[in-house]
Amino acid sequence: MGWSIDSVQPTGVVVRLWQERVALRLPLRPLLTLAVLLFVLGSVIALSLTIGSYGMSLADVWRVLTGGDEQPQMSLVVWEFRFPRALVAALVGAMFALSGSALQSVTRNGLADPSLVGISQGAGLAVVMLVVLWPDAVGAWRPWAALFGSLSIAALIQTLSWRREGNSSMRFILLGIGVAAFISAMTSALMTYGEIDRAMSALAWLSGSVNAANWADVKLLSLWLALLLPALLVLSRPMAAQQLGDATALGLGVPLAWVRRGLIITAVALAAIATAVVGPIAFVGLIAPHAVRRLAPAGVGLHLLLTAALGAVLVALADLLGRALFAPVQIPAGLVTSLIGVPLFLLLMYRTQARGGQA
């Protein structure tokens, strides 16, 4: 009954579930890489709890977290400011990374990223409209507005790129970049004509900052990630078949149209909810899947878990660097990831052109 580890071999681990109704052979290298990434993530979060204007040691943080320290000021700093901020950074990093991985799978193009193809910008425009035009509705409607904006842009780009015969993934990317630029211009115009205090609030949000993260954001992100990550894992098997080509996938009985719709909706939802909470954070969805393929090649399911872990590390580390490098000035995590991601995007574009347009 239950589950068991049947054997541990030099090349992998065999796991049998529910009286051998499900058997999995998990490669050892990806498992070890996942463990290392989770350890690094925990270390980054622990370090972020000690850094700030109110300095603390790891021992101080441990006492606060375990209830062994009754200093009100120290408890307030850790529980109300630093801990939710670190968790939000990790959660949005995982969500943006998973969104990028799903988009790259459905388009078969390594340049796909929610910040490049207009999905994050669609969410951003919807939220900025709320902030500038209906500020009283921001709290209740922000996640749903972001989701609606992202889905609308995704549907537009899909219609423009997939209704033509040939279904070029590069066309999807280029159309997305053009639509993203147009939406960014609309967002800037909206802030220009809005009231100054609302425009400044929207501008701070658009920089991709986790400064204002709280426990309500942690709960919202955790809930959506708990719903959407299993959906992606369920789609991992048809995703693996899809990588063999449309003809092979259809021959194996994969409903390609439904799989593509499911991947797009899940990818859009992941990016939209993350954007609604912290604003657009660029290039995480581009960097994480590519880096994971080089760190530990794995099947689709393990690749998704590794991508989520690396995305969480990237944004948590970007937030930590933005806080620590130029203290007391804080650089938003979105700007840090952009500084890292732009050179990598140019390199990937060059490699894609060199290979004849296939990323």
Rank of each mutant, 00 (worst) to 15 (best):
S7V: 10
V8Q: 10
T11E: 09
V14A: 11
V14T: 15
V15N: 11
P30C: 09
L34K: 06
L37H: 06
G42H: 01
S43R: 02
I45A: 03
T50M: 13
I51Q: 15
G55L: 15
G55A: 07
M56V: 11
A59E: 03
V61S: 12
W62P: 06
G68W: 08
D69F: 11
P72E: 12
L76Y: 05
F83Q: 14
P84H: 13
P84R: 11
A86N: 11
V88G: 05
A97W: 01
A97N: 03
L98Q: 04
S99V: 03
G100D: 00
G100I: 00
R108I: 00
N109T: 03
A112S: 02
L116F: 01
L116N: 01
V117Q: 01
I119C: 04
S120M: 07
G124A: 14
V131W: 10
P135D: 00
V138Y: 10
A146K: 03
L151T: 05
A154M: 13
I157R: 02
I157M: 02
L160K: 14
S168K: 02
M170K: 02
F172R: 02
I173K: 04
L174V: 05
G176Y: 03
F182T: 07
I183M: 12
A185H: 15
A185C: 15
A189N: 13
L190K: 09
G194S: 04
E195D: 06
I196V: 08
A199G: 03
M200W: 04
M200H: 05
A202M: 03
A204I: 13
L206G: 11
N211T: 11
A216S: 14
D217K: 04
K219G: 11
S222M: 06
L225Q: 11
L232P: 02
L232R: 00
V234I: 12
S236L: 08
Q242Y: 00
Q243E: 10
D246A: 15
T248K: 04
T248D: 07
P255N: 12
P255V: 15
R260T: 06
L263A: 01
I264R: 09
T266I: 03
A267T: 03
V268Q: 09
T275K: 08
V277W: 12
P280E: 06
I281D: 02
I281V: 12
F283A: 00
V284T: 01
G285E: 00
L286N: 01
P289D: 05
P297E: 00
P297R: 00
A298Q: 02
A298S: 10
G299N: 03
G301H: 10
G301D: 10
L302R: 04
L302T: 02
L304S: 14
T307E: 02
A309E: 13
A309Y: 09
G311T: 04
V313S: 15
L314P: 08
L314A: 12
A316W: 15
L321C: 12
R323Y: 07
F326D: 14
A327L: 13
A327Y: 14
I331Q: 09
G334N: 03
L335V: 09
L335S: 14
V336H: 13
V336C: 09
L339N: 11
G341V: 01
G341H: 01
P343E: 05
P343L: 13
P343Y: 05
L347C: 11
R355T: 08
G356Q: 00
Q358A: 07
Q358P: 01
